[in-house]
Write a protein that binds this DNA or RNA. Structure first.
Length: 232
DNA sequence: TGTATTTGCGGCCACCCTAG
DNA sequence: CTAGGGTGGCCGCAAATACA
């Protein structure tokens, strides 16, 4: 994990060859790939120079998730695969800011646009970096969308703003975990310092209130089947 | 094992809605 | 009222499957 964080390609290769388990998660619920993405999202230089090498060495294939008692396989070639992992990767660093900046907001196409701009074309084609395309993926996989290939990955909480479907589960170390049990809602608003694997809280009254409201809403969506009142 | 048919899927594009 | 962009339909390719 440290090796991926630092973008040390040769070391990652060595570890993967030694059968290091890339599915293990750290204390905030991230696996090696998601740590790579978090790093890439916050550091354009890392995205441009280190990302491609480490990405390749991790030898990703696919991930399996569980939604509505159905198993859904996401192949690594699918944009959905990358976008779900990006949402996870941006959970602590970016989501907190968005929640505070825009009342009742969450991830929007602009967040992906901004972050993907620094990704090399070998990982994301130019076409896939366009706003229209990103929007269409978000929309297509929104839980209420009537689309043949809707994978129910996202929940829209207002126009153009999405979060990971609160009823989505991922398999971690052989166990099915709800995504918001794996990612710690209580750590929203904390930030990572330097290369450390831990997060620190930056206290701010207004921010705390917005974050509390957001956390409550997500918990409610996860635990009930009521249609979301705030969505018009 | 080669060919036909089906199904899955990515991406293009136009319409329409929303915010300003 | 307008521009920007979210939304959803659709087209055509490619992989999978069925069948001889």
């Amino acid at each position: 994990m440290i090796a991926t964080r630092l973008g040390h390609e040769a070391l990652v290769e060595k570890l993967v060859d030694m059968d290091a388990n890339t599915g293990l998660v750290n204390n905030v619920g991230f696996n090696a790939f998601q740590i790579v993405l978090e790093q890439a999202c916050g550091d354009p230089k890392y995205a441009a120079k280190k990302l491609a090498g480490v990405y390749q060495q991790l030898k990703l294939e696919s991930m399996v998730i569980q939604v509505n008692e159905r198993l859904v396989k996401l192949d690594k070639r699918l944009m959905e695969f990358l976008m779900l992992n990006l949402m996870i990767a941006m959970f602590y660093t970016r989501l907190s800011h968005i929640v505070v900046q825009f009342r009742g907001g969450a991830f929007s196409s602009g967040d992906f646009l901004e972050v993907l701009a620094h990704f090399p074309d070998s990982i994301v084609s130019e076409r896939r970096k366009k706003r229209a395309y990103i929007s269409s993926i978000l929309s297509k996989n929104e839980i209420d969308r009537d689309d043949r290939y809707n994978r129910n990955l996202f929940r829209r909480i207002k126009l153009g703003h999405y979060i990971i479907n609160p009823k989505l589960s991922v398999q971690v170390e052989g166990e099915w975990r709800n995504i918001y049990d794996l990612l710690s809602l209580d750590l929203l608003g904390f930030r990572r310092v330097d290369q450390a694997e831990s997060y620190f809280f930056d206290p701010n009254k207004r921010m705390s209130m917005q974050l509390e409201a957001f956390k409550e809403r997500v918990k409610c969506l996860r635990d009930t089947n009521e249609p979301d009142q705030a969505l018009t």
